[in-house]
Amino acid sequence: MNEVLEQTKWIKACRTTDIPENGGAAVKIGNEQIAVFNFTRTGKWYATQNECPHKKQMILSRGMIGCADNIPKVACPFHKKTFSLENGTCLSGEDYTIKTFPIKIENGYVYISINDEV
């Protein structure tokens, strides 16, 4: 009866109130830096790698979020490369991708799974 049906291993990352509305912040899980975004306008949450692949800078959590053609995105503050928050593809036409991670909200806390990428 105690078989594990859910394989995803969730890690408690922070309180929901730690992440600004319609913005992001970084959390540290082990040695990984994860950017967490609270897309209040749609009620959705996203987690991605914090590093922008362009110049390899730990920065994406400080980027502005928004949408392009209804795809939720984050813009890197350094050179304004934009990435889909849904699947990490670069929306400004370059061959970069960022990792995205499963995220869920429970009882006022943000949980992230960094074992398997979405």
């Binding site: 749609t42 980027g63 502005m64 928004g66 949408c67 939720p72 304004k80 934009t82």
Partner: peptide, 9 residues
């Protein structure tokens, strides 16, 4: 929509 890095600033 939900804005972007152009219209927000």
């Amino acid at each position: 929509g939900h804005g972007c890095e152009v219209c927000k600033p």
